[in-house]
Every structure is written in structure tokens, then in C-alpha cells.
Design a protein around this nucleic acid. Sequence first.
DNA 1: AACAATTACTAAAAGGTTTTAGTAAGCTCC
DNA 2: GGAGCTTACTAAAACCTTTTAGTAATTGTT
Lengths: 342, 342
Amino acid sequence: MHHSITLRDIARALNLSVSTVSRALTDSYQIGHQTKQRVLAYAKAHQYVPNRLARGLKEGKSRAIGVVVCSIDNNFVAQMLDGIDQYCNSAGYHLIIMQSKESFVQENECIHLLHAGGADGLLISPSYQTTDFSYLQQLQQTGFPVVLFDRLSEGIHTHMVAADHFKGAYQATRHLLENGFRRIAHFNSNTKLSMASKRFEGYQQALQEAGIQVKEDWIKFIDTSHVAHLNSHLEAAIKEIMNLDEPPDAIFTATDQLSTQCLMKLREMAIAVPHTLGLIGFSNTDMASAFYPSLSTVHQPAFQIGELAAKKLIQLIKNKNADVFETVLLDTHLQVRESSHR
Amino acid sequence: MHHSITLRDIARALNLSVSTVSRALTDSYQIGHQTKQRVLAYAKAHQYVPNRLARGLKEGKSRAIGVVVCSIDNNFVAQMLDGIDQYCNSAGYHLIIMQSKESFVQENECIHLLHAGGADGLLISPSYQTTDFSYLQQLQQTGFPVVLFDRLSEGIHTHMVAADHFKGAYQATRHLLENGFRRIAHFNSNTKLSMASKRFEGYQQALQEAGIQVKEDWIKFIDTSHVAHLNSHLEAAIKEIMNLDEPPDAIFTATDQLSTQCLMKLREMAIAVPHTLGLIGFSNTDMASAFYPSLSTVHQPAFQIGELAAKKLIQLIKNKNADVFETVLLDTHLQVRESSHR
DNA sequence: AACAATTACTAAAAGGTTTTAGTAAGCTCC
DNA sequence: GGAGCTTACTAAAACCTTTTAGTAATTGTT
């Protein structure tokens, strides 16, 4: 076998009982100073680490946290996972990461697997498809702690951590307006999650305040769940808005993928940015400045979102009496580059 | 509590023993047909799921696989993790992902935690710092399955899966040569891992075959472990090569980070690419085509590397008698864009 | 000196599963 | 009518930890 030593091994070696060793390692008052020292020294020398499974079984806790995201292979998600991992690790929790791939069915499978598999709690950023949170809610009501991050929804009542989508969208749109763009199109995901509607609302608010009537033709809700199809959907959307009688003079894109893909598509279609079409979008890529033209972005504090969500969840796990759920919205940061001003 | 029902619950409900229930669920020949039916029906109706911790404790297996990478927040790594996750999930394994952050010390902590924490095996892509594989080797010799992926080393004898670094580097350098570049600089990581030396060798080989003497001044091994410092190191390196009596006319960069950062830096320093300096580098970002100029890359089959490494590891876990270790090198793919030809 | 309180330890149970080593009943066969 | 099989089940141990409920020895109080 390939396992490290157990309490029994230490007990045998030092001629103590298993319980004494266990207590010595948790610094119990019931154990004498000398004994503690001996146990600690031996444990350290032999690299004793408590068996997670045994401890988990005994305590009814696994010290593992389930994380469900749309995809690991996503710049923004990876940054959030980094934050989650950092916090959980320092708190002694393992991370079990699963991918929904934007599928509601697969997401529910992940949730079930994580719950049944003994995770102590769940961090979830729902799939674009998800509208029904009943399963999650059901688990939550049996005492299973759940925290939503990044993508929020009214469909469930719990702690939530995300960027301030409304404000970010509002700022981006205002920025375009301040730079003389008037006919601003909006590309968004076709999801029912509130992140999309919040961003849409921020866009609308900025236009309304500027006395500009929001035109329905300017707004495209694009299916972004399948990367393979995104390209053609995007091309169609761009063609549609450019063929309008009065085509837009700028686009505000609401997601990471849409922003970068849109810039690439415009280049491919030989539509000059920002001359013919200004562009600003939500995106966290550090390569935005390498693009042509460099891409103005709304940057979300991804790492902090992850960190804070993890913190909230672990609080919840340790302290189940939480009846007051909080929604934390972190400020986005506007990074103005070439694509959004002439 | 938020746990599902146990064998005992079923046993009590059906007036059977725990062992009978356990056996019925595993379709043992020792249990009668009728009893099996009753147990199965009850288990299904009450959504019985075996407790992973208990089963793991009993079997000495956790059905979890440890993965150690430098960082989740890395485009290329994320793609490999996607592949790993896909395969492991379909094989019924959980993934526990940990980050070394390019630190040897932290890496060893991860390894220890994963091993002691009951992982059934380890997938590892070593940190740039790592030269000493003795701990890993020691674990491996006690029967703990280990598979190296992406970043290989001679320091340990086991299954390995990676891209063909030599060939990729050779092809990239040849491509530059074929496009008229003669004085080709080479930027690489300052790691002792074989991936770096393989890429360096591929570069050398291509130059030698073209009858070009490799100049030491053209070659920079840059510390890429800390993103914060990379920028200044890179700037210094570029200045150094451009201040040579005969400055290079192209650069071949050996890592993802170096490639994209180098392009950005050259743009910042107003060095025309590809006119003054051609550029090609290893990189997996799908945004290479959005850059200015669009970046020619050596693309690695990241997903497949992850998938295959996971497959090898699970084979090893299920079938410990492996004495013949294999090193699989997958072909890279040259993506020629604007930065590498005039 | 008798009793209570404190200190330093231990035995054993529990958590849920798998598995070894059984048992009891029913059957076949001479 | 009993030996030997088969069938269908069960009891109990084991995995490793934490924790409850102890014990025995020492110290303190009156």
C-alpha cells in the first residue's frame, strides 16, 4: 500500500493509545505537555497527515468543496477558480471542480455527484441554460450550503458574489456615449440568468439618460453556449445590424467570448474599429492590449469574486445558522484602449 | 443532516442485514433474485448513493485523482485540465486540482497532501523550479501511480505525455528560415525541465541544418515563474539583443507567456513585427489571430495531452503491474499568421 | 485521614462500506 | 437417514478517525 502512517502507527511507536495521539495532535487540554511534544515530533518526522476519508466519515464532513462552472477552459473562469483555490487551500479544503459545459442536465448531474459524493458545500456558477433551481434549492433546504458566484439568479435564495454587472455595463455604455457614439448596439448571451439582464439594463439606463431611444434592432441575444456555433451566429448578428437603414456606430458586448470574438470577426469582415464601429466589452483577458485595435474592456475582479465566494461558503459550512443571505457586488474596472474612441 | 440514506436504512426497512443489502446492490450471486429486486427498488426509490468516504476508507481507494499544475489561471493549462476532466469524469473519477505556482516547495506540499489525502494517483506537470524528483519517486516506488504530462523530466521513470517539443521548435525555426530570416534569436524559460532543452535543441538543429552558427548572444533564458517580473525581464532581453552589433531579425519564443508578452512588448517598444523582427512562438491562445500583427504559433494538442495522460494514469491505477513505462509525444501544429513572414 | 478535584491517560463506540467466514435450510443421492 | 451440495442469507471485522465515558494516580481541602 501507498499510504502514509496512521494514528495507530504513532501510538504503537510511542507506546500510547490511539486516542491519546489523536488528542495530542489536536492540542487537547487532556494531554500532558511532554506527551504532546513527543507525538508532535514523531508525527512531523514521519510526515503524518490525517486520513481525509476516515476523518470525513467520522465527522460527516469531507473537507472538500464542490465547484461547478461552465468550463475550466475559459480565461475568466480560470481566474475565479484561482481565487477559490487560494482561499480554500488556506482554509484546509480541497476543491472538486466539475464542468457543466452550459448544459442544465450536466449541471444537475454535477450537483448530484458532488452532494452525494460528500462535498461539504457547493460553489456554483450556473449554466446559461439553467432557469430551474429547484434541485439546488431542495438540497439547500436539507442544510447543504450553496453559494452562487459570477452568474446570479433570483431563482434561489442564498449568498451570492459577483461583479456589478449593471454598473459595469452602464459605465461602458456611458464611455461610448462620451466619446461621441450615439447608435450603440448591444450583443448579449441568450440566457435567462440575471447577469445578462443586469448588463442589458445598465446599457439601457445609460442610453435613456442620454436621451437616446433604445432600438430593438440594435440588440442581439446570441447563443454563446457552443463555441463552434458562436462564429456564425456572430457573423449573422453583425451583418444584420450593419444592414439596418441606420446602422449602429458602436457595439457594447456583454461577455468575454463575445467581446474578443466580435473584434476578430470585425477584423475578418474588414469593418474598421473604432472608425466604422466602436467596440467595448466585458473581458478579463490580459491580451486585450495586444489586439488590433487594442480592445477596451470592462474588467471584472475575477480572483476576488472567487476568493470571496469561497469565504462565504466556508463561513456557511462552519456556521450553519445563517438565515441572512447576502449578495455582494464587486466593482468592475473600465480599461479604455483603442477600440472605443476615435 | 444533508446526507442520503445508508445501507443500514435499507436493511432495516426491508428487514435484511446490511451485508445482504450491500451484496444485492453489487449483484452478487449470493443473493436471491427476489431479494435483489426488493433492494434495488427501495434503493432507487430513496435515491440511495453509496457514501464515497466510507467506501474509500474501506477499499483504500478514493476514486479521486490528484492533479498538480503550475496554475489554473493559464490558458494552456486550462485546456489540458479540460481534457483530464473529461476523461476522468467518464471513468468515474473525481479531480482534485492543486497549484504549485512554479514553486518547488509548494509543489511538494501539493503532492504530499494529495497522496496523504487519499488520491488514487497523481497527474503532475512539474514546476519550473523542480529538479529534484526524489519525493515523487519515493511515493511511486511504494506503488503510488504517477503520470507526468506536458512538462517532462528524466528525473523520474514513469508514463509521460506531452507535445513533441523538439519537433515543434524545429518546425517553427525552419519556418522562419524558409521565410528568409537568418539571425534568429531564441527566448526560453530558465527551467531545467526537459521541455525547455528540447525546444532549445529543436531550434539549434534547424539552424545547424541551415548552416547557421548559433550565437550565444541570441539566446535568452528568462525567468518566467513570476508574471510580475516577466515584463521587465523581457524588456531587458529585447534591448540586449537589439543592441548587438548584428541584431537578430527574428525571435522564436518557447512558451505561451513569452510569445504573447513578447509581441505586446515589441509593440510597446515600437519595434515593427515582422518587418524589423519576425516572431513565432509556442502558444495555444485562440486569440493569436486578433493580435497586431496576428501571431504565428506552434499549437500544442492540449486537450489530447490531458486526456491521454488521464487515460494512462487510470490504466496504471487499475492495473498496477505496469513495468513498462511509455513516453508519448503528440505532434504540434504550426499556425502561420502575419508575425512570421514578410 | 477522608474526600473532592484535577491531571493524564485509555477503552470502546461510532461513522458506512466491503468482505471474510460463517449458518441454516433445503435438496440430491446412495 | 445421513453425507455432501447448493442456495440464501447473516454476524462481525476492518478501514482510520474522533469522541464519549471512563480509570487511575496525584494534588488539594478540611
